[in-house]
Lab assay of single mutants.
Amino acid sequence: KEWNEKELQKLHCAFASLPKHKPGFWSEVAAAVGSRSPEECQRKYMENP
């Protein structure tokens, strides 16, 4: 399903605030978004950083 504005906001906010070198980075991003898997978050971010 399409990403909504709130999900995208959470994605970018989590990406900006979490340490990128940490193992499980995308899992933490997904936990912050709440409604998406780590894979979905990574794919979406890579599509549209």
Score class of each variant (00 low, 15 high):
31 A>G: 13
37 S>M: 05
28 E>N: 11
24 G>S: 13
37 S>C: 05
42 Q>D: 02
15 F>R: 06
10 K>E: 11
26 W>T: 03
5 E>K: 13
49 P>L: 04
39 E>Y: 10
4 N>P: 01
45 Y>L: 12
28 E>Y: 06
33 V>D: 02
27 S>G: 12
43 R>M: 11
28 E>H: 12
6 K>V: 10
29 V>E: 01
5 E>S: 07
35 S>L: 05
9 Q>G: 06
30 A>C: 04
42 Q>I: 08
26 W>D: 02
46 M>H: 12
15 F>K: 07
19 P>R: 09
33 V>Y: 00
34 G>P: 02
13 C>T: 15
1 K>L: 01
5 E>T: 15
18 L>C: 11
34 G>I: 02
37 S>L: 08
48 N>T: 15
23 P>D: 11
21 H>V: 14
42 Q>A: 07
48 N>P: 15
41 C>P: 01
28 E>M: 07
19 P>L: 03
20 K>T: 10
3 W>V: 02
18 L>T: 13
37 S>I: 03
47 E>F: 06
48 N>F: 07
28 E>A: 07
16 A>V: 07
16 A>M: 10
16 A>K: 14
28 E>K: 15
1 K>M: 10
12 H>E: 12
21 H>I: 14
33 V>L: 05
25 F>G: 05
15 F>Y: 15
33 V>Q: 02
33 V>T: 04
18 L>V: 13
17 S>Y: 06
41 C>L: 01
12 H>V: 06
19 P>A: 12
43 R>D: 10
48 N>Q: 10
28 E>C: 08
22 K>C: 10
26 W>I: 03
35 S>H: 11
44 K>E: 14
12 H>Q: 14
13 C>H: 14
22 K>Q: 12
36 R>D: 02
4 N>C: 02
45 Y>G: 06
17 S>R: 13
14 A>V: 09
43 R>H: 15
28 E>I: 07
39 E>R: 06
6 K>E: 09
25 F>D: 10
17 S>D: 15
15 F>V: 15
4 N>S: 09
45 Y>V: 13
6 K>Q: 05
8 L>F: 03
20 K>C: 05
44 K>A: 09
1 K>S: 10
43 R>C: 08
49 P>I: 09
43 R>K: 15
9 Q>L: 08
36 R>H: 08
7 E>Y: 00
28 E>Q: 08
49 P>D: 03
22 K>V: 07
31 A>I: 11
5 E>D: 10
39 E>D: 13
23 P>F: 06
39 E>P: 04
10 K>M: 08
32 A>V: 13
33 V>R: 01
18 L>E: 06
41 C>E: 01
44 K>M: 12
37 S>N: 05
10 K>N: 06
10 K>Y: 04
47 E>D: 14
1 K>W: 04
36 R>N: 04
47 E>M: 08
21 H>W: 09
12 H>F: 10
20 K>Q: 15
47 E>I: 04
43 R>Q: 07
43 R>G: 11
35 S>P: 03
6 K>G: 12
23 P>K: 09
16 A>I: 07
40 E>R: 00
25 F>H: 04
4 N>R: 04
32 A>W: 11
4 N>D: 08
42 Q>R: 14
26 W>A: 04
41 C>A: 03
21 H>C: 13
9 Q>P: 00
28 E>L: 09
1 K>A: 01
41 C>N: 01
5 E>V: 09
40 E>P: 00
14 A>R: 02
32 A>N: 12
